Amino acid sequence: MTSPAMRGPEDREFALRASDADREHVAELLGRAFAEGRLSTDEHSERLEAAYAAKTMGELRPLVADLPVVFAPPTASSAAAVLAGTSVSDAAMRYGGEPVVAVFGEAKRTGRWLVRSGLNARALFGSVELDLTEAVLEQREITITANAIFGEVIIRVPDGVILHDEGSAVFGSRKLPSLSGTVFGPETPVVHVRGIALFGNVEGRGPRRKWFRSR
């Protein structure tokens, strides 16, 4: 048996434990391949299930080994990130942040909370709602990776915030329109929404309106 000290850098790298962001990265690559017709429905379903069950980087790598992509997850080295055409800072921005996950259930983030420069939301046969109306944005522009697989991700933003759709839909829908009256300027907050809607729905909504009864 080869001792850890005798293993090469690549062996040690792929023996690392996989994070939620790593699994999300592979899931997104599989979704793109499915959308391009490189994987059948059954193949995509099997690999997606394996991706979310993976515990190490070495278990994730074979899932995309026969696809025209570069396996450079966010925990990879800076050299791997460059090979993927992404700088380390870009990778951290895209995949950083605490994940919000709903599996056969519901998850919500509401009230006053800090939204970091990157946020991951995953709805698998469930529903995720991200309410940004009272949230504090870490930066003027943030990126949300929203993957809705047989589920839905709802992103609620206050007036004056621009939603920019950068994701894809496969047998699903994405509705991220700009709110009426929103004007782009140098100080306008922008939310970039990436990810995939696979038999699911990713939707942007405005703030909840309060209605008062007159007495």
Rank of each mutant, 00 (worst) to 15 (best):
P158C: 08
D90M: 02
V82D: 09
R94V: 08
K55Q: 10
R174T: 09
E187W: 06
I142F: 01
G8E: 06
L29W: 03
N201T: 13
A197N: 00
T86G: 00
L67T: 13
V136L: 11
H25R: 07
F14P: 00
P62S: 05
G118V: 00
D165G: 06
R194H: 15
W211F: 14
P158W: 10
T41V: 09
L114Q: 10
D11I: 00
T75A: 14
I196M: 14
S77L: 07
G172C: 05
L48P: 02
E106G: 03
H44Q: 13
R12N: 08
A5V: 13
A197K: 02
V101F: 03
R23C: 02
L83E: 12
L48G: 06
T110I: 12
S87W: 00
P177S: 14
S40Y: 04
W211R: 11
G96R: 06
L67N: 07
G151S: 08
G185D: 11
G151Q: 01
S3M: 10
G31L: 02
G126V: 03
R7P: 00
T188N: 09
R61M: 06
E10D: 14
R116M: 10
R174G: 04
E46M: 10
P189A: 06
H44Y: 12
S45A: 14
V115F: 05
I196L: 15
G167F: 04
P207S: 07
S3P: 04
A169C: 10
R208C: 09
E187S: 14
V183I: 15
D66R: 14
M57N: 11
V136D: 06
A197W: 13
S117F: 04
V70Y: 02
F71V: 04
V136Y: 12
M93Q: 15
L176W: 08
I142R: 00
L132V: 15
G118I: 00
L179M: 13
M93F: 04
P189L: 06
M93S: 06
A123S: 08
S78C: 13
I149W: 07
E59F: 08
N120T: 04
Y52N: 06
L83D: 12
S40F: 07
S214N: 07
F71C: 08
V64E: 01
A51Q: 05
A65Q: 12
S173W: 03
W113E: 10
L29I: 04
I154M: 12
V202I: 11
L63C: 03
L29F: 11
A27L: 10
G126R: 02
T2I: 15
E152I: 11
A5I: 04
A148K: 03
R140F: 02
I154Q: 10
A33K: 05
I149S: 02
A18H: 07
L67I: 08
S127N: 12
N201L: 13
H192G: 06
R194W: 14
R61W: 01
G206L: 02
S3K: 14
A5H: 11
M1C: 06
E166C: 12
V161A: 05
E46D: 09
V26Y: 01
R112Y: 04
